[in-house]
């Protein structure tokens, strides 16, 4: 879902760029205040995983493919602001090293796949944890729905940006983007759930929702 140059109007580029810059700034501020030393290697490995998984386009219906996004997964593991930092690292490298995603559209791509994906994914996850049964099944259900929604909403945002930019009428772009990404979101949910399951088994202490209150703040 990397938007190339030429699709978005200057207004949208500047608007999404400004909002993304604000959130990246908040991420930097938040990290300076609260990023623990033990989380630093986790940022690295999450960025590496998201980059690699994004290369694995999987086929979906009718000659289309989709790939992993990763914002919801990162937000579940690291919190939404750290997730935005990780997504920004990946998107900047993709644009500068691999010519994937337009340079002028980097703010829009960070906004759609990073900010929207991380916050909506994280918010949905937190909400569902309260509603669903405690324990691993609730955790996985919340992960699946949150990650599906993160892709669906990012696609919706991209469609709105295309519509407002006058690139495609919103009534054409929105249903097309949402229907394709409703399918791609299933792949997103499967990958995120597989990762969170693996982490929940190997290192339950790394998932805040599985942490017992008395273990909070324990050395990692």
């Amino acid at each position: 879902m990397h938007i190339p140059d030429g699709f978005l109007s200057p207004k949208i580029l500047i608007g999404t760029g400004a909002v993304s810059a604000l959130f990246v700034g908040a991420g930097v501020f938040n990290a300076k205040k609260s990023l623990g030393e033990h989380q630093v290697p986790l940022l690295g490995v999450t960025a590496a995983f998201i980059f690699a998984a994004q290369m694995l386009n999987f086929p979906v219906a009718g000659g289309t493919s989709g790939h992993f996004g990763g914002a919801a997964m990162a937000a579940i593991l690291l919190g939404p602001l750290n997730a935005i930092l990780v997504m920004t690292v990946v998107l900047v490298i993709q644009a500068l090293v691999f010519f994937d995603g337009g340079l002028s559209a980097i703010g829009a791509n960070v906004f759609n796949m990073g900010v929207t994906g991380a916050f909506l994914g994280w918010g949905t996850y937190k909400l569902l944890l309260k509603v669903l049964p405690k324990g691993k099944s609730g955790l996985l259900g919340a992960t699946a729905v949150a990650s599906w929604l993160s892709v669906f909403a990012a696609a919706g945002m991209a469609a709105v940006e295309l519509g407002v930019s006058g690139t495609a009428p919103l009534k054409v772009a929105l249903p097309a983007m949402l229907s394709v990404h409703a399918l791609i979101g299933i792949g997103e949910a499967l990958i995120s759930t597989a990762v969170i399951t693996t982490v929940a088994v190997a290192r339950p202490d790394l998932i805040p929702a599985l942490r017992r209150p008395e273990a909070e703040g324990a050395a990692v």
Binding site: M55, N57, G62, T64, S65, G66, A176, V180, I184
Partner: peptide, 11 residues
């Protein structure tokens, strides 16, 4: 990996 266009490219 699939070389089909991704969701946005396809749309």
């Amino acid at each position: 990996a699939s070389s089909h266009p991704d969701g946005l490219e396809w749309v």
